[in-house]
Design a protein around this nucleic acid. Structure first.
Length: 768
DNA sequence: GAGCACTGC
């Protein structure tokens, strides 16, 4: 094995390595007056040494005396299961490059392991960092805050975090960094050797997010190039062996396992005798049964989506009120709290409200029921839950590479998911979990694990990031679970049509810039092309608006009012232009929350759009993508519609017949304009942002375009010779012929007419 | 004449 010359950890293999010494202390000084890290040799540190350093009066990283708060927190840390196994941890960590760690809920792994590593790596002495990734922003933030407190340092100095829109680190000072997995993946794209890190810890690896999966592949091969880099993969029990095998050393010996027990209470699991035909009805019945018959304690019910949840809330409330009225002596009051991601944060906070008080001083106590999507399975923990009701379903993303469509399907959950749900009942005391399916179905029908995201996603973005990170052969890339070859093919094909990759699959100059934008490739292509049409300011806004959740609110009881408000802001030429108009009005109204409220718009989504817009703007400036606008509105609208064609030429539909039926070009999928579409006519050609499969196939966020733009700005895709026959193809061929005729006619006339004259006429015709 | 599971850059 060859060692890189600048390997800072090679030193300890040589007698010249020096342990940290205390220049200021005299011989014979007592241990506590020495440097706290006196005698520490990087990666040969043991638990006794660390134990002493933790008890030292001085903070080894700030050289300041420890505060009283530090001592108090330290006592609590010592009670964590992971703390008791520090000796074992250092034995394994010092000896191996890659380790897999299993630590159940409550073990303290996320806060403690990175600190243990820091005491061994001593990254601050080598200008390195220890990184710990998290799948979610809030986790990265809150854990960093906790660890900064534990280490007695201000957040953002020695301990920091890095998430999109927020870098709370100080270069040169921060040596322990919590970050989102996506953020580390971005860094790997521009610095494939990740040289600033001495150890990288992937936390929650069992969740198998797309970014964590790709990072595992990248880090596995990086570990071979950088023998000084250590990796820790932290996961739940069920997946540990899979990761141990994946990270096996060259001889085939699995990576070593470091295991720490959790600290949770037992949960008793019950199954139904027979399968339940209607899981929502069964769930409501079970909640009421618990409320009537079980000891005090809050209930968590898992359902699949907003509508189901709101519906169940109403029904449970009604039934519970009936129960109380008929039997106030034995049934206490009950509140139902819905929980899903599109709820405003303020309403999400309600899950932490205490349960209602007893109706009378001697009456039965109240109970809280939280009805939640999967958000309560991983992202949010609610204390005080004693009963979990699990119907066994969730909405899951599925990707069909054949028609290039991602959609959401209600599907049975996995065993791992069911276990996670049950565990939510045992966080504060022993609990019960009611599964609304039979034990036999649990054993034989449920998959062991939820399919990793990489198998359920469109990979266009990921492929571009990987190519940018220098990974040449994506088919041979060492995936933990390899995606379907067709998924990769579809991604490569799209990137090639967008000119991000050349015909040999090499990154083009354009593709290299596209990869820098945190966007789908269609959007980044459109954005980069837009200065040519002199509307990059507007395309920037539209791109930001397309990158955030839906801005339109439509409350159940105010649909009519919401639709009227929306009509006021609608631009009939296309939904993309409407999005631009909404954003501009939002700015003109100075980000006014009342204005958004009165217009049935989501203030949260608009704020997010503004935030995204700023970030994208900075990237544009960095790569000198010019920011310009044409003043004339007619010209501007035309330019925007042309820019759209540069990115979304593969998402075009052609009207067939006069009944409003559309057919996507090339794929020939029958679709209809989504009812939310604001077009005042049914144009022959439209470009759409997304295809959604609900009650029928719809295209959503749609704008009127002209076929000649498609032929001109996406000539390689619209190479009609290779197309199967279709109405769209014949219409395109007719248009081509017409354009050629016009061109010749213009030649004959000598006098050329100005561009735009014809379009004004067309608009008049349309409106008249 | 609809509906956004959940993350992330």
């Amino acid at each position: 094995m060859t060692m890189p010359k600048d390997n800072p950890y090679l030193a300890h293999r040589h007698p010249t390595e020096r342990a940290i010494s205390s220049a200021s202390t005299l011989n014979g000084a007592s241990p506590s007056s020495r440097e706290p890290l006196y005698g520490f040799v990087p990666r040969m540190v043991n638990a006794d040494q660390v134990g002493q350093a933790l008890e030292h009066d001085l903070n080894p990283f700030t050289k300041q005396p420890h505060t009283a708060q530090y001592k108090k927190i330290l006592e609590a840390r010592k009670k964590l299961p992971v703390f008791a196994q520090m000796t074992e941890f250092y034995k394994i960590f010092n000896k191996h490059q890659i380790i897999v760690m299993v630590g159940e809920t409550g073990s303290g792994k996320t806060t403690q392991i990175p600190q243990f590593v820091a005491y061994s790596d001593l990254p601050h002495t080598k200008n390195k960092m220890v990184a710990c990734t998290q799948p979610r922003r809030v986790a990265a933030m809150s854990v960093a805050k906790r660890v900064a407190d534990e280490m007695d340092v201000p957040l953002g100095r020695q301990v920091g975090y890095s998430i999109r829109f927020e870098d709370m680190t100080e270069p040169g000072t921060t040596f322990l960094k919590y970050m989102t997995d996506g953020m580390l993946l971005r860094e790997a794209m521009n610095d494939p050797d990740l040289n600033r890190y001495s150890t990288i810890i992937l936390d929650e690896a069992h969740e198998r997010t797309l970014a964590t999966d790709i990072l595992m592949g990248i880090l596995k091969s990086l570990a071979q190039r950088r023998s000084d880099l250590k990796l820790i993969i932290m996961s739940a029990t069920l997946d540990a062996l899979k990761f141990q095998k994946y990270f096996a050393v060259s001889g085939g010996t699995p990576a070593p396992l470091f295991k720490v027990p959790g600290r949770t209470h037992p949960v008793e699991v019950f199954y139904t005798q027979e399968p339940e035909p209607d899981y929502v009805e069964a769930a409501i019945r079970t909640v009421l049964m618990i409320h009537r018959a079980e000891e005090p304690g809050d209930i968590l019910l898992f359902l699949t989506g907003e509508e189901e949840i709101e519906d169940a809330c109403r029904k449970i409330k009604l039934e519970a009120d009936d129960l109380i009225n008929s039997d106030p002596e034995s049934v206490g009051p009950l509140i139902c709290i819905p929980l899903y991601s599109s709820l405003p944060p303020q309403q999400q906070q309600r899950i932490f409200d205490p349960p209602p008080k007893a109706g009378s001083p001697d009456g039965p106590p109240g109970r809280k029921v939280v009805i939640s999507t999967n958000i309560a399975e991983t992202s949010l923990t609610i204390d005080g839950i004693v009963y979990v009701v699990d119907p066994g379903f969730s909405k899951q993303k599925v990707y069909n590479p054949r028609i290039r469509v991602e959609s959401l399907l209600v599907s049975p959950i996995s065993k791992a998911s069911a276990q996670q749900r049950a565990g939510r009942a045992g966080r504060t005391r022993p609990g019960k979990c009611f599964r609304l399916y039979t034990e036999k179905d649990f054993m034989s029908e449920l998959e062991e694990q939820t399919h990793p995201e990489i198998l359920r996603s469109n990979l266009a973005n990921t492929v571009l990031e990987l190519v940018k990170a220098g990974i040449k052969d994506l088919v041979k890339f060492d995936y933990v679970d390899a995606p379907a070859p067709e998924t990769l093919m579809r991604a490569l094909e799209l990137l090639n049509y967008l000119a991000a990759l050349d015909d040999d699959g090499n990154l083009t100059a354009l593709g290299s810039i596209m990869a820098e934008f945190p966007l789908d490739p269609q959007l980044s292509k459109m954005l980069i092309a837009s200065p040519e049409f002199k509307c990059s300011n507007e395309i920037l806004t539209i791109t930001a608006m397309l990158s955030v959740p839906n801005v339109w609110m439509r409350p159940n009881n105010q649909r009519k009012e919401a639709d009227i408000a929306k009509a006021q802001l609608t631009v009939p030429d296309g939904d993309h232009l409407t999005l631009l108009n909404v954003y501009n009005n939002y700015i003109q109204n100075q980000y006014d929350k009342n204005w958004t409220w009165n217009n049935y718009l989501s203030a949260r989504a608009l704020m997010q759009a503004d935030n995204v817009r700023e970030q994208l703007k900075r990237t544009m400036e960095r790569f000198e993508v010019e920011l310009i606008s044409v003043q004339d509105q007619k010209k501007m609208f035309m330019a925007i519609r042309q820019s759209l064609c540069c990115g979304f030429f593969m998402q075009v539909a052609h009207k067939e017949g006069d009944k409003g039926n559309y057919m996507t070009v090339k794929d020939n999928q029958a679709v209809a304009l989504h009812p939310s579409c604001g077009l005042d006519t049914q144009p022959e050609w439209v470009i759409f942002n997304e295809f959604v499969l609900t009650t029928r196939p719809y295209i959503r966020t749609v704008t009127d375009v002209r076929p000649e733009w498609l032929l001109e700005y996406a000539s390689s895709y619209y190479d009609l010779d290779n197309w199967p026959d279709s109405e769209a193809k014949r219409a395109l061929l007719r248009n081509k012929k017409k354009q050629a005729g016009k061109f010749e006619a213009r030649f004959d006339q000598v006098e050329t007419s100005k561009e735009g004259g014809g379009s004004a006429k067309k608009r008049k015709r349309k409106q008249g």
